[in-house]
Nucleic acid binder design. Structure first.
Length: 455
DNA sequence: GTAGGGTTAG
């Protein structure tokens, strides 16, 4: 469709208009055609700050934060002056990268600019710090901003949510009401998400039912949060009952939440029911097949596991590749499972082996059989200690002075086995380890994790 | 005067 639109534009002679060209950049980016957007962008004879911002935000929207930052760097070389909207996109890119050093640098840079008190920029800062693993720095920005609006309050609540600080989120909601700022529907999504990450079932249930007091109609997303809230806590029948009483047709996220809950609590019948709905709504999602397979694996129903694997093969589905990244001295290192591509891989694997020995001495054991069949993660049949996050941690341990906090970003959900191992690593190595997985943050310290094993 | 923007699940 994009090409046809472009042909039309060229034929009608609008191709020299900077507004039209910028529209084209934005249009391509929003269609996911980021390469085409980039092509148009570099072909332009004139680029305004809006054009640059469109290109940066285009990369952010397409999940390519490093490219976004590269374009920002190129923009700076042209002496183009950023506007506050430009910073918002750049901050978003920093949050996606997850580098706390970069985040601090941008914060300081903005603090010296004319935008230091802009609510929208500060909201982006709060979100950025939260996504880089520092809830405290998020809170600092929040505290120093004077006229907080509903979006800023909601962003701070969402920050507590991903860090598993449910009570803080609820307390902030109370403060928000006291400050006279009315919540919106997004505030409640964040609040419910905070409750479900912390197991605050009754608080979440009450919050869901008080939405009408603010004249907010619960949307599908709110219902999905409640299903997750109940399901994760083990109230599977209550969750299913809730779904059946919904005033709208339950969609993907509802059945997805139920399926996740069935995996955690090993409930085969409801899991099969949820998966059936999911397969009919979205037949080619790898994730749903993998989750059902994992439910069978945890119930040790190996025949069904292999049947499902055959089905996946027939459908041409293969599992997503897991990877983890860690930043050392400003350089981002990405590792896959069993990754031996790093120049220091020998040292890394020696460290992994020595770690595993120390963990065993400290009494660490694993449920090898079910882990090996847990398709969710990155299994190869060789060893269990070479998951990408373990390699990233080993690399972090040999590359930083003792006591340095390690910050890892993983694209999948944390694996049960690694989660247990990292808790122990934080103790035997006396390190804080912050892991951002696909859903939330885990802060490991002294043998414990901030999620309280509830994730 | 036209275009680019902050909070939302797994």
């Amino acid at each position: 469709m994009g090409r046809r639109v472009q042909c039309q534009i060229l034929r009608r002679g609008f191709d020299s208009d900077v507004f039209v060209q910028n529209g084209l950049v934005t249009f391509y980016a929003k269609c996911g055609e980021i390469e085409l957007a980039n092509k148009v962008f570099w072909r332009l004879s004139e680029r305004t700050i809006v054009t640059w911002t469109s290109m940066i935000s285009g990369y952010v929207q397409n999940g390519q934060p490093l490219e976004a930052l590269r374009v920002y760097g190129q923009m700076r070389k042209t002496n183009m002056k950023p506007e506050w909207i430009t910073f918002v996109s750049v901050l978003k890119a920093c949050g996606q990268v997850g580098s706390i050093d970069l985040a601090k640098w941008m914060d300081e840079y903005i603090a010296s600019s004319e935008f230091k008190d802009a609510v929208v920029v500060n909201t982006a800062l709060i979100d950025m710090y939260a996504k880089c693993g520092s809830i405290n720095l998020s809170r600092d920005v929040f505290n120093r901003t004077k006229d907080k609006d509903v979006v800023m309050w909601s962003a701070m609540i969402a920050a507590y949510a991903v860090h598993g600080e449910g009570q803080e989120a609820i307390d902030l909601f109370k403060a928000m009401r006291k400050a006279g700022v009315p919540p919106n529907d997004v505030t409640f999504v964040s609040l419910l998400s905070a409750c479900k990450h912390s197991g605050l079932v009754e608080d979440g249930w009450k919050l869901f039912h008080c939405m009408s007091e603010y004249s907010i109609q619960p949307r599908h997303q709110h219902y999905a949060c409640v299903v997750d809230l109940l399901g994760r806590a083990g109230y599977l029948d209550r969750a299913y009952e809730f779904i059946r009483n919904m005033p709208m047709e339950p969609g993907l996220s509802i059945w997805g939440a139920l399926l996740t809950a069935c995996k955690i609590h090993q409930h085969v019948p409801l899991g099969e029911l949820a998966a059936e709905r999911l397969f009919s709504l979205d037949p080619y999602s790898t994730g749903h097949h993998v989750q059902l397979s994992n439910i069978y694996a945890s119930a040790r129903m190996w025949d069904r596991v292999s049947k499902l694997r055959v089905l996946m093969k027939e459908k041409g589905l293969s599992k997503d590749l897991g990877y983890s990244s860690i930043e050392i001295n400003g350089k981002l290192q990405v590792f896959q499972v069993g990754d031996k591509s790093h120049p220091r891989f020998k040292e890394i694997f020696e460290e992994l082996e020595s770690l595993e020995r120390r963990l065993k001495e400290a009494g660490f054991s694993i449920d090898a059989e079910s882990v090996l069949h847990d398709l969710d993660h990155e299994e190869t049949e060789e060893t269990l200690c070479n998951h990408s996050e373990r390699i990233a941690i080993a690399y972090g341990l040999i590359s930083t002075p003792p006591g340095t906090t390690l910050r890892i970003i993983k694209n999948l959900r944390a694996c049960v086995n690694c989660h247990a191992a990292i808790k122990l690593i934080s103790k035997v190595e006396n390190r804080e380890i912050v892991v951002r997985d696909a859903n939330r943050f885990h802060h490991f310290k002294d043998g414990n994790c901030s999620c309280g094993d509830y994730w």
